[in-house]
Design a protein around this nucleic acid. Structure first.
Length: 407
RNA sequence: GCGAUCGUAGCUCAGUUGGUUAGAGCGCUGGUUUGUGGUACCAGAGGUCGGGGGUUCAAGACCCCUCGGUCGCCCCA
């Protein structure tokens, strides 16, 4: 029997347990609660999609598509990709199921996503997002609705302190194209003052030079043409309606004219909730409007807005985690009472009281073990059965139930 | 993909210029004590020093390769 080297977890994946799992679950539970408050329907979607779903919608030249996707050929010879984001898959589902009949749709999803990147704080190869989208709504009110929901979600998670909403508009397609052309011209004139990274960006994604972190780029970026000078009247009105809506709803925001999106499909509103508490991965929730995406996937022109947030990043920011306390812990003081302990355990659980028991190890240390798990009450069982409990005597349902048990 | 840094018991770590049998605290298991909400003490189990190769009489320590974590770049939520 040759011993094998125990396999490690795949790089960039996580095994979550204990506090990290509780944080994760709390983010998801809070999201599920809040999205219902806003009337967003849930969705369950495949983790694998045809590769074309992402290559057509995100832009072939983006890093996500060109070097970060987990793509493979399945046994039938089809090119399959583990989803690197939600939006494209949602758009695909919208089209393949004919959900135009339900438009406008308010949808939400959460689950794992996959990107082949170098792992670091707040960035994993299998990571998880919560996601909300409104499809088939062209009006700025939809943008406002999503942002108000995001704002409430962050508040309910208790992480809105130190997180700011940065807002920008990329304009409609003509505005964006004109701005982009002006930027390319401007940056070409200032090539000598750009970093090496930004020279590469100039070819692939010139908008990204605007939010470059390289100190060398900052002066050039700061003096670059601004979108405001290229916005059509329509695009201006749209952005004005979004900001007015946010003000009316009491959502704080700041304008960041250098805020752009990494993926090609965005138009009009672009936004990020940003924190300085996560090091280099400061974006906590981000999104925008993507009116062109569904058309790119072969569907009818369909307006849509959405956002996504990294569950791991939100989980790391939570400061006060609700305590998960077991209500009743049975200590079996003598193994002869095991049967009666089973019966009591079942009775408790059927009454809706969370309960567990300690019945192994040194009998004399069982009590100590129970104490360490910090249950609301410890129930004592010996060879004669249940004979009492200890714990703070309150008027809670748990205590009333325990008092009803005749010792 | 690039740079930096780290990897010793289940966890957090110590381990001298390379030198006997690699240690501590916590946790775990058992016992004694206490006696009904975290007692104290005693004992025990638990380590291919991330993995592979090299230098050396001798490597946890030095060199090379490799895997993984962390931080930054890039990318992005």
């Amino acid at each position: 029997m040759a011993k094998i080297q125990t396999p490690q977890a795949v790089r960039g994946t996580q095994d979550m347990f204990g506090e990290s799992e509780e944080r994760f679950a709390h983010v998801v539970a809070t999201f599920e609660r809040v999205r219902r408050l806003y009337g967003f329907k849930g969705l369950q979607l495949p983790v694998i999609e045809p590769t074309a779903v992402f290559s057509r919608s995100l832009g072939e030249a983006t890093d996500v598509v060109s070097k970060e996707m987990y793509s493979f050929e399945d046994r039938g010879g089809d090119s399959i990709t583990l989803r690197p984001e939600f939006t494209a898959g949602i758009a695909r589902a919208y089209l393949t199921n004919g959900w135009q009949q339900f438009a406008p749709m308010k949808l939400s999803v959460h689950g794992p996503l996959f990107r082949y990147e170098r792992p670091q704080k707040g960035r994993y190869r299998q990571f998880h997002q919560i996601d909300a989208e409104i499809i088939g709504a062209a009006e700025p009110a939809a943008d406002v609705e999503l942002l108000v929901m995001a704002d409430q979600l962050l508040k309910e998670l208790g992480i809105n302190d130190g997180v700011t909403l940065q807002l920008n508009t990329l304009g409609d397609t003509p505005s964006r194209d004109a701005w982009r052309a002006a930027l390319v011209g401007y940056f070409n004139d200032h090539k000598h003052a750009l970093s090496e990274d930004s020279l590469a960006r100039l070819e692939k994604n010139p908008l990204r030079i605007l939010d470059s972190k390289d100190p060398m780029d900052r002066p050039v970026a700061a003096a670059a043409p601004v979108i405001d000078d290229y916005l059509s009247g329509e695009a201006q009105d749209f952005f004005g309606a979004v900001t007015a809506g946010l003000d009316a709803a009491g959502v704080a925001w700041t304008r960041n004219a250098a805020l752009v999106r990494g993926l090609d499909y965005y138009r009009h509103t672009a936004f990020e909730f940003v924190t300085d508490r996560l090091g280099a991965q400061g974006t906590v929730l981000g999104g925008g409007r993507y009116d062109g995406l569904i058309e790119n996937l072969g569907g009818p022109a369909t307006p849509a807005v959405g956002w996504a947030a990294g569950i791991e990043r939100l989980a790391m920011l939570i400061e006060q985690l609700p305590v998960q306390q077991l209500e009743a812990m049975i200590v079996l003081e003598n193994d002869a009472g095991l049967g009666q302990a089973f019966a009591l355990l079942r009775q408790l659980r059927q009454a809706g009281i969370s309960a567990d028991m300690i019945a192994t190890g040194s009998p004399k240390k069982r009590y100590d073990k129970a104490v360490k798990q910090n249950p609301a009450a410890i129930l004592r069982v010996n060879e004669n059965g249940y004979y009492g409990f200890s714990g703070e005597d309150t008027n809670s349902p748990l205590m009333n139930f325990l008092k009803s048990l005749a010792p």
